[in-house]
């Protein structure tokens, strides 16, 4: 999958920029922006939580990206498929099912404490479609990867952003265009669910 940066931790992160202590502020601000945040110890816990969600949301069709980058995610997607779920991970499949899928699973590079934003690398078409088209977007992130503030986030980004498509996602899609009443899910997802992982986000190229 095409990305702005193939390996963010290696090429863009450093100890002075990435501060795991910003987690609390990140969680607080993400929730303030109506994101649902789960901190999970490992992929087994993530799977359990995910299956719960699939049931409660009555998910019939899933788009999923990031398997090529994270072996544990790849395994999770394959397991879900083997258990009979319709899960699309190939780009043309994703394009075909984009408008009918009920859940998109994608990944984020890091979170920002000051704003509760996820920094997402969406160079590939399938990553964008997966995170925007279905009514629910589930995002996996490494819980240790947070920056304190927006300035630091751009210190990180400026190291690797030469071309492509990326940005911040902060809570679900929203509008207040009618009577300034907050309404979620106008064009993008109405729910943004964050799985912040303590382990399991080891990379295939590490």
């Amino acid at each position: 999958m095409e990305k702005v940066c193939r390996n963010w931790p290696k090429e863009a992160f450093s100890k002075d920029l990435i501060n795991p202590n910003s987690w609390k502020e990140f969680e607080e601000n993400a929730k303030l922006a109506a994101a649902e945040v789960y901190r999970l110890p490992d992929m087994a816990a993530a799977k359990e939580k995910l299956i719960e969600l699939l049931k409660s949301l009555e998910v019939k069709s899933i788009l999923a990206v990031g398997g090529d980058e994270y072996p544990a995610l790849d395994k999770l997607y394959k397991d879900l498929a083997a258990e009979g779920n319709a899960i699309h991970t190939e780009k043309f499949d994703i394009a075909e099912s984009a408008n009918t899928a009920d859940l998109g699973i994608s990944t984020a590079e890091f979170g920002i404490g000051e704003t509760g934003s996820l920094c997402v690398d969406n160079y590939s078409y399938e990553a964008r479609v997966t995170s925007m088209m279905p009514p629910v977007n589930l995002v996996f992130m490494n819980a240790d990867y947070t920056t304190t503030d927006v300035d630091t986030a751009f210190d990180v980004i400026s190291k690797v952003f030469d071309k492509g498509y990326m940005g911040f996602v902060t809570g679900p899609s929203r509008t207040a265009d009618i009577e300034r009443v907050l309404s979620l899910g106008v064009h993008g997802p109405s729910r943004l669910i964050i799985f912040a992982m303590d382990s399991g986000m080891e990379r295939s190229d590490d």
């Binding site: 095409e2 601000n29 303030l32 922006a33 780009k91 043309f92 394009a95 920002i112 000051e114 704003t115 509760g116 934003s117 160079y123 590939s124 078409y125 399938e126 479609v129 503030d149 927006v150 300035d151 986030a153 751009f154 952003f161 030469d162 071309k163 492509g164 498509y165 990326m166 940005g167 911040f168 996602v169 902060t170 809570g171 679900p172 899609s173 929203r174 207040a176 993008g188």
Partner: peptide, 30 residues
Amino acid sequence: AKIVRLLPRNGTCQRMTSYMTMIDGPTPVI
């Protein structure tokens, strides 16, 4: 950073808007 720390806060009283998207050059389309 100098723009996006202020624009959402002053514009819509948010610390960040839902989407802050940066597009640089042609990107893939299917």
